[in-house]
Each structure stands twice: as structure tokens, then as C-alpha cells.
Amino acid sequence: MGKAWKFGDNISTDLIAPGRYFHLRSNLPELAKHVLEGARPEFALLVQNGDFVVAGENFGLGSSREHAPVIIRIVGVKAVLAKSFARIFYRNCINIGLPAITCNTDEIDERNELLLDMERGVITNKTKGEEITFPPLPPVMNRILQEGGLVAYIKNHKSLEI
């Protein structure tokens, strides 16, 4: 179980991993201290292992920097839930083994306690006693995620078969 941290629509990669820390991209633990700083400066101090990032439409728009989902994962976020995701960011999440879940996030409030069941496709909001269902990932992405990301997938299969 983990807490929900709410964000709005159009959270860009410039808000998640700001360009002013470009020089920290080869030092991900340091970069992670600034995760989502542009949207919420104190986020890195608040977030705890197992928490959720919960957002509106078009989460992760902007650059291809994979460092953005990587640092969200480094600070212990279990999954990102959003109404919709930008294309490259979504793929990056799955590639690095961070669940990106498209669902209706309107009823989730800040600090609600959430439980994620990937198998059943259900998020249980313990605080409100509600369930939110979400559609399964596309099969190829589901397999990549199940195997722990694209690097592990390639190592397991020795090729790119889908």
C-alpha cells in the first residue's frame, strides 16, 4: 500500500527532470533529489517507498529523456497513474519496469492510500473504499514489464521477438 501524490495535466519532462540538472544525468541518485521539482519543489522529500504519482492528462510530454521515469522509480514510486500519457514517456516507463497505468484519476485525492493489483487490473482506494479498474497493457508491453523491463527482456530472449 502507498500514498497518492496528485499532479495536474501536462506534467512535462522539464518539470520531472529539469534541464538545469542536465549535468547530473550520469549521477541518477543526485538527479533523483530533484524529481518532479518543477511541478512540486518538495516532492523528493515527501515521497516514500511504495507511493504513487497520480496525474491528469498527457503525463510526461516533452523530451525523450528516460531519466525522467528512472528518477521517479529511484525514489520508490510504485506506479504512475494518469488519465493519459505522452507516447515516449509511456514506453520509457515500461522499458525500465515502472508501471504506467492509464485510468480515471479524478476520484483519487491527495494522500489516499492505494493498493495496485496488476493482474486483476484494479486499483483499490483504501481511504475511500473504492475500486478503479484499468485496461490491461498492450500484450507486448505487458510482457516487457513482467520480465522487469526491456534490458532484462533482451537478455532473456537474446533477440527482439514480440
Binding site: S64, E66, I88, R91, N92, N95, G149, L150, I154
Partner: peptide, 9 residues
């Protein structure tokens, strides 16, 4: 455009 891991592959 893709992320670093996709392009690595």
C-alpha cells in the same frame, strides 16, 4: 523519438 533503452536495442 524514443528513450535511451529503446535506442540501445
Amino acid at each position: 523519438g524514443m528513450g535511451s533503452t529503446d535506442v540501445a536495442v
